[in-house]
Design a protein around this nucleic acid. Structure first.
Lengths: 240, 240
DNA sequence: GGTCTTTAGAGAGCAGTGCTCTCGCTTGTA
DNA sequence: TACAAGCGAGAGCACTGCTCTCTAAAGACC
């Protein structure tokens, strides 16, 4: 029953946008609004359930896209497949995506169970990082420095991945945050590498959000190709 | 008068969140709700005015932060100053920031005058790119290739900026989009360089949005330091 | 000064919203 | 058969955006 309500609510969400009307949902189900309160304590409760489902749906999609690459050593292919899955899901479910990654509703605080579901998508990327690091493909000490011209003092930490001219110097606090995060999601991965992984993670959602939220209007028309190019760039950044 | 209404609305926005109530604004002004319709045709109209003001306020802040760097050749310092200004404004005006860069309201389409105001912030970055390119500091042909290990075929276009191991190969459509954008905002800047500039632009807002929208909760605590580190990384990416 | 027109705001009202309450009806169980 | 639990209906409260009509003030013109 609750799942039927959520299904109708999801449909309303996709057609009407973010301001979900409980009464309209009830009307569509041939019920009266007060009946819905048997199943959800409030409208926020319904939204929370939808958010939870959304994180899980996105996570499943991304996990499946990663798992579809049978050669697990093809880290770059796995990453691109996962990234495309994120964009594909977002384009197919824009309202739900906005619910997950858009502006949070005013006084709304995400319940703890949503954060676990929210971690599924970054966990896929973390697994790719972890696999690459374990296989010695990432963060190897064999990189040579580029001779790229630098304007100020060199911020580059030596011996780190792909794009070796990049600043991977971390302050103690940031390093502590990243180390803690690595322990939780990608054990063994050094904080510098996780930093680059998080950069790709954030940038991936940045590009998708800009596309969905209209920031690319009149700027980028070839959205899919642009996204692919950016994700290739990110793969290079990590050294996949 | 309209400015007084907007001021009260802004205040409401900052305390109550995104769902702005026209009646509450009117109440605070000692008026009745219908009186507001003399000045704004609808609630969306008021929001549009606030969005326009927001883009301009952010743009002014960023422009001032860039202009504060007297040595115009210090591109990296200018970029970091502008980026910090974006984050600072966003943290000081979270509700307005969400209005600008969060999920768009359902049926809302941004009027053309807002896009001009929205372009002020990226224009600052474009000017930095333009200055650097004109001075020959960016995108010079003197870069050496790194020997970074690459998993697949090499996507790197030779002779491009700072982080030379990165994929800057553009498909014709993306190249066309970027060339058109460059003509509008950074004349003369090659599309590959503008692509890197847009990457930093998107990533900057990606990091700020993740911070403001709660995606960093329980992950990154040292927000300011993390932001700085990421912006340094982006500066390296462009080759500032 | 006396009209006359524009303008600002008040007030009532409509349709819609989230949410609470009470009251019946149905269904499963002892 | 009696009881209890759960489910939905209906009315109602306070709120919202928005439209309409009406009144009072202010400015323009002769």
């Amino acid at each position: 029953m609750t799942s039927e309500i959520k299904a109708v609510a999801r449909q309303h969400l996709s057609t009407e946008g973010a301001n979900l009307s409980l009464r309209a949902v009830a009307r569509d189900m041939g019920m009266v609004s007060s009946a819905l309160y048997r199943y959800f304590a409030s409208r926020d409760d319904l939204l929370t359930a939808l958010i939870l489902d959304g994180y899980n749906a996105l996570g499943e999609t991304v996990e499946a896209a990663d798992a579809a690459i049978t050669d697990r050593s093809q880290l770059r292919t796995r990453w691109l497949s996962a990234a495309r899955a994120v964009r594909g899901w977002a384009l197919a479910n824009p309202a739900e995506y906005a619910l997950l990654y858009g502006s949070p509703v005013p006084g709304y605080a995400a319940p703890p169970d949503t954060v676990a579901a929210a971690a599924r998508t970054p966990a896929v990327l973390a697994a790719i990082l972890s696999d690459g690091f374990a296989a010695g493909v990432l963060a190897g000490p064999t990189m040579g420095e580029t001779h790229a011209r630098r304007s100020a003092a060199d911020h580059t930490a030596p011996g780190l991945p792909g794009a070796s001219a990049l600043s991977t110097r971390l302050t103690p606090d940031v390093r502590a945050d990243l180390t803690r995060a690595a322990n939780g999601i990608a054990p063994g991965v050094p904080p510098e590498l996780l930093m680059l992984g998080m950069t790709t993670w954030v940038h991936m959602f940045g590009v998708v959000s800009f596309e969905l939220f209209g920031q690319f209007n009149n700027v980028i028309d070839a959205r899919a190709e642009y996204f692919d190019q950016q994700m290739e760039l990110m793969a290079d950044l990590i050294g996949l």
